[in-house]
Computed example of a mutant assay.
Amino acid sequence: MHKAFQFRMYPKQEQATIINKTIGSSRFVFNHFLAKRKEIYASDKKSLGYNDCAKQLTELKKEFVWLKEVDSTSLQ
């Protein structure tokens, strides 16, 4: 027999703000590098790897300072 547990979380306002910033920043970074990958593939027929994206992520954080507000591992 399998058991399942269902939980409901009620974050405080500050926690909800941090969660929303993390989700939004992750979405921004994903879409940014997806566009880069499509652009590079269309022009050179090559793919942009994880290491290349990780190197560019530090430069992206310098350009968009608000990316430093969230946890760095969530952006990777």
Rank of each mutant, 00 (worst) to 15 (best):
K55S: 13
H2Q: 09
D71Y: 05
C53K: 13
K62Q: 04
D71F: 04
K61C: 07
I23Y: 14
A42N: 13
R8D: 01
P11G: 02
S26H: 14
A42V: 08
H2T: 09
T17G: 03
V70R: 07
L57E: 02
Y10R: 05
L75I: 07
N51E: 12
K3C: 09
S74E: 02
D52R: 10
F33P: 00
W66P: 09
D52F: 02
N51T: 11
N31H: 15
K55H: 14
Q15E: 09
K62R: 06
L67V: 08
A16K: 13
T73D: 00
I40P: 00
R8T: 13
K68W: 01
S43V: 15
L34A: 10
W66S: 06
Y10N: 01
A54D: 11
G24H: 06
D52M: 04
T73C: 00
E14D: 04
A16D: 07
F28T: 05
V29L: 02
E39G: 02
K36S: 14
T22A: 05
R37Y: 07
D52Q: 14
F64G: 04
T22R: 07
E63Q: 14
W66E: 08
F33E: 00
F7R: 04
D71V: 05
T73H: 06
E63L: 11
K46N: 10
C53F: 03
L34K: 12
E39L: 06
K62P: 09
N31G: 01
V65Q: 11
F28A: 06
F7E: 03
L60V: 03
K62V: 08
K3Y: 10
V65W: 11
K68Q: 03
K68V: 01
T22D: 00
W66M: 03
K36E: 15
K46I: 08
L67Q: 03
S47F: 13
I40T: 10
V70M: 06
L60H: 00
V29H: 03
Q56S: 14
H32A: 04
W66A: 03
K62D: 10
Y10P: 01
Q13W: 07
M1G: 12
L48G: 01
F30W: 14
F64N: 14
K21N: 11
L34W: 10
I19C: 04
R8M: 02
Q15G: 03
E39A: 12
I18W: 12
Q6N: 11
E39M: 08
A16P: 00
K12P: 11
S72I: 07
M9G: 04
Y50Q: 06
I23F: 15
H2R: 10
R27C: 05
S43M: 10
Y41G: 02
F30E: 00
D52P: 07
L57P: 07
S25N: 07
I23P: 15
W66H: 10
A35L: 10
T17H: 06
Q56W: 08
